[in-house]
């Protein structure tokens, strides 16, 4: 019986150990509730920094919280809904190890963005000066035309 069952599920001779079908949908619905609660927590954080006008370190802390909650949601979707958690170690590592490149990508590019911002703040004129109401035909100061 066990053997017959596996024959029915194994779709390819490449598969050595077929998965047994889950007995019920309990795990799926549990994951749904977890995702819903995490999303509501994200929304609460997103609205809180709008309502309470947070700034500086507190704002960064709230944004960091939302990033961590999003990563948790990603883990649940990939592990349970995409069934990566049920695959063997070789498969998991093949998918997950290349994602480590993102640590470098995010760090390097955001660092570059901040460097640009610092250069702008140092050398650009304040933006309000450039767009202040002026006579229609007046030349912009420093314009080449």
């Amino acid at each position: 019986m066990e053997h017959e069952h596996q024959q029915a599920i194994a779709s390819s001779p490449e598969i050595t150990f077929a998965h047994e079908p889950a007995p019920n949908t309990k795990r799926i619905w549990k994951t749904f509730w977890i995702l819903l609660v995490l999303t509501i927590a994200e929304l609460a954080l997103g609205l809180s920094h709008y309502i309470f006008h947070m700034e500086g370190w507190l704002l960064l802390f709230v944004k960091g919280g939302m990033i961590i909650l999003s990563l948790c949601k990603a883990v649940y979707i990939v592990s349970i809904f995409m069934h990566l958690g049920d695959e063997i170690r070789n498969m998991k590592l093949t998918i997950l190890v290349p994602l480590l490149l993102f640590i470098w990508f995010v760090t390097a590019f955001l660092w570059d963005g901040v460097a640009w911002k610092n250069l702008r703040n140092k050398f650009d004129r304040p933006s309000t000066e450039q767009v202040a109401p002026a006579a229609h035909d007046a030349q912009k100061p420093g314009g080449l035309d």
Binding site: S12, E14, I15, T16, F17, H19, E87, I88
Partner: peptide, 22 residues
């Protein structure tokens, strides 16, 4: 949905997917 793989099973000996997927 559990996969029962015996400990020390050799995945890289050829003739099958070392990832156990199609």
């Amino acid at each position: 949905m559990s996969t029962h793989v015996p400990a020390g099973y050799k995945w890289w000996t050829g003739g099958k997917s070392p990832y156990n997927v199609s």
